[in-house]
Computed example of a mutant assay.
Amino acid sequence: MSISILIAEDQHMVRGALKALLELEADFRVVGDVASAAEALALLEHQPVDVLVTDIEMPGASGLALAERVQERWPRCRLLIVTTFNRRGYVRRALDLGAGGFLLKDAPSEQLADAIRRVAAGGRVIDPELMLDALGECDPLTARERRALLLAAEGLSTARIAERLCLSEGTVRNYLSEAIGKLGAHNRIDAARIARQKGWLY
């Protein structure tokens, strides 16, 4: 029985290489390769798959946001994160979302194929060093603080952030102040930089 796979990767060359590699496996069937979370969700509406192979940093919604939506809508779809970024916040968030695997893009191709088979069978594949690192430092931000910080990093003013989140400006200032304090940052932009480096903004 073949394993149906959807690839979500914004870099065209990388996406093409992944598809070509996976199509060499007799038991794999790549049913789609898309460049964004929105395209992945649109395809899944009409084509259920066994395994979603997704990058993290993509235009629009991130791979982690995509993983969250997929788990809500299609809980039987297994998740494998394949990324360039070895950030403990990403790994921890992927685990929290129930991802079956987390691999770096420089992993050998045979390791990717093996990981897909194990994830499709209900197993979990995460490099031991990545796992230990992920368990080291917890994300101190609340969901609201993270969202406010993410919008601040996009250059939005306090008033615009308040409008987007349907909150008062005072509440937004409190969220940003809390985030800055928790991260030991100098200002909101510095806080966003620190949080992004640690993989806590997604």
Score class of each variant (00 low, 15 high):
Asn86Met: 06
Asn86Pro: 10
Asn86Gly: 11
Arg87Leu: 03
Arg87His: 11
Arg88Ala: 13
Gly89Pro: 04
Tyr90Gly: 05
Val91Gly: 10
Arg92Tyr: 05
Arg92Cys: 04
Arg92Asp: 08
Arg93Ala: 14
Arg93Pro: 04
Ala94Lys: 10
Ala94Ile: 09
Leu95Ala: 11
Leu95Trp: 01
Leu97Arg: 03
Ala99His: 05
Ala99Ile: 08
Gly100Ser: 05
Gly101Lys: 08
Phe102Pro: 00
Phe102Thr: 07
Leu103Phe: 02
Leu103Lys: 11
Leu104Asp: 00
Asp106Gln: 10
Asp106Phe: 05
Asp106Lys: 13
Pro108Asp: 13
Ser109Gly: 08
Ser109Glu: 13
Glu110Asp: 15
Ala113Phe: 08
Ala115Asp: 02
Ala115Asn: 04
Arg117His: 00
Arg118Val: 07
Arg118Ser: 02
Ala120Asp: 10
Ala120Pro: 11
Ala120Trp: 11
Ala121Val: 04
Ala121His: 11
Gly122His: 02
Gly123Trp: 10
Arg124His: 12
Val125Arg: 12
Ile126Gln: 07
Asp127Tyr: 01
Pro128Lys: 03
Pro128Ser: 06
Glu129Tyr: 11
Met131Glu: 12
Leu132Arg: 15
Ala134Lys: 09
Ala134Cys: 11
Leu135Gln: 11
Leu135Thr: 04
Glu137Cys: 08
Cys138Gln: 14
Asp139Asn: 15
Asp139Cys: 13
Asp139Glu: 11
Asp139Ala: 05
Pro140Trp: 10
Leu141Tyr: 09
Thr142His: 05
Thr142Gly: 13
Ala143Ile: 13
Arg144Ser: 12
Arg144His: 11
Arg144Glu: 15
Glu145Asp: 09
Arg146Gln: 15
Ala148Ser: 15
Ala148Glu: 07
Leu149Met: 02
Leu149Pro: 02
Leu150Asp: 10
Glu154Gly: 14
Glu154Ser: 13
Gly155Phe: 10
Gly155Cys: 14
Gly155Arg: 12
Leu156Ile: 04
Ser157Ala: 11
Ala159Tyr: 09
Ala159Val: 14
Ala159Ser: 15
Arg160Trp: 09
Arg160Gln: 15
